[in-house]
Structures are given as C-alpha cells and as structure tokens.
Simulated assay, not measured.
Amino acid sequence: MHPTLLRLDPSECISRIEQMDLNTEGLLRAADAAVSAASDASPFDPSNASGTFAYIFGTRAMREEFVSSRWTVDRQEAVEAIRNESLKIRVVFQNVDVACNEKLQPKPRSKKGAGSERTCSENMLFDAEAIPHYTPAPTKGDYATYYLMVDESGACELSCPIVMNGTFTSFLERIFLTDSSGIPVTLSQDEDNDAVESFDPPVVRKK
C-alpha cells in the first residue's frame, strides 16, 4: 500500500492547487454544480439518476472552468477528463462515498473500469515523498492523474489515487478542499469516529 500525503491546511492546499495551474474557486464551483444537479433527480427517474447528473454536470463545469490554452479536454482510455500538457497532469471528476475525511479514504460510488485502471497506472511511477517538491516531468510522456472527488454532502478533495480491481486502493496525495459546510477544512486530530477505529492507513504528513 502506498503512503498517503495529506494536505489539510487551507493555505497549503491553495498553494498546491495553484502549483498545478488550477484554482480552488473553480474546483469548488464544479463541485457545487455536481451537487446541485444531483438534487434535481426525481423519484420517477432511474435509480442512478442522481449520480449520473452529478457526473455529467460536474465534468461539464470542471471543463468550463479550466479548458483554455493550458488545459484541454481529454478522453484517453474513454475516461472523460481535462489535461495539462505542459505539467503532465490529468484531472477527472468523480462521485465518491466520502471526501475530506482524515480517517476514511474515498471510494468511487460506481465501479471503475479497465480504462481508469490503465490511466492511473502511471501514478505509480511517482514517488509520494517527492510530491511536495515536484511538478510532474514531461520526459516520459506520463501523466499524474488526479480526481476531483465529491461526495453527496458536497465535501470535496483533489486526490491522486491508485486504481485496482474497480476501486481506489491507495492514494499518493489528498488535497482537502472543503467539507459539506463549504468552509475550507481544518480537521481536529481528536475527532471521534468509532466506526473507523480499526482503519489505520499509512500517512506521510508534510513537514
């Protein structure tokens, strides 16, 4: 299992997002668009309508926010994303069960396909301990693939996962953006959560 670099401090998260040629405001607007679209689902819609609406409008909003001379639409391996060619970064929208929870790692609300697994396989080429200092190098043509992960409450994070067997098995980096209140996250270290006491993921904290 890969160690996870958690970024919790709002000022650090903003700085990291800017290093990636993104901005927190645009990411949060895309998350808001997804949550708003999900709420439009009717009891008469198909059972997966809420998640489908969130995915479609979250992906659309993310592209509307960032596609420009630096970011382009990316559909490699049939995975809908945006791509920054110079930084070699790809960002995908994803509905998850939980986001911005220090004790729980996000899981996709629908099974990831083989294309997602192949796309994220390049993440394993990067060293998590080097992430605080790196801008992904374009020497081999490999991309670091991040996901804008949004849960049903509106909590969201921008994170770099490893995908295996249809799910996220570990993370190199998790950048917390906001909890369900819409306020940048500052989590207490003594937060109680009896349901996850046995969960102890390896974590590398930035010093």
Score class of each variant (00 low, 15 high):
residue 159 S to N: 01
residue 200 D to S: 14
residue 162 I to R: 13
residue 182 G to Y: 03
residue 18 E to T: 12
residue 81 A to R: 08
residue 144 A to P: 01
residue 163 V to W: 02
residue 151 D to M: 06
residue 139 T to D: 14
residue 138 P to I: 03
residue 150 V to R: 02
residue 180 S to M: 10
residue 74 D to L: 00
residue 76 Q to R: 15
residue 143 Y to H: 14
residue 189 Q to R: 15
residue 183 I to T: 15
residue 46 P to T: 05
residue 70 R to M: 07
residue 146 Y to C: 05
residue 70 R to G: 06
residue 117 E to M: 09
residue 195 A to R: 10
residue 92 V to Q: 10
residue 124 M to C: 12
residue 202 P to N: 07
residue 3 P to W: 00
residue 126 F to Q: 10
residue 34 A to L: 14
residue 78 A to K: 11
residue 179 D to A: 09
residue 67 V to F: 03
residue 151 D to N: 09
residue 174 R to M: 08
residue 23 N to E: 05
residue 27 L to K: 07
residue 131 I to K: 02
residue 44 F to A: 13
residue 30 A to Q: 02
residue 65 E to V: 03
residue 195 A to L: 12
residue 20 M to S: 13
residue 133 H to Q: 13
residue 22 L to N: 12
residue 176 F to E: 08
residue 105 Q to W: 06
residue 38 A to N: 02
residue 145 T to L: 01
residue 150 V to T: 06
residue 201 P to W: 00
residue 36 S to A: 13
residue 162 I to C: 10
residue 137 A to C: 15
residue 91 V to E: 04
residue 132 P to I: 03
residue 112 K to G: 05
residue 113 G to A: 04
residue 10 P to R: 10
residue 2 H to M: 11
residue 154 G to M: 06
residue 33 A to D: 10
residue 43 P to D: 12
residue 67 V to D: 09
residue 59 T to K: 12
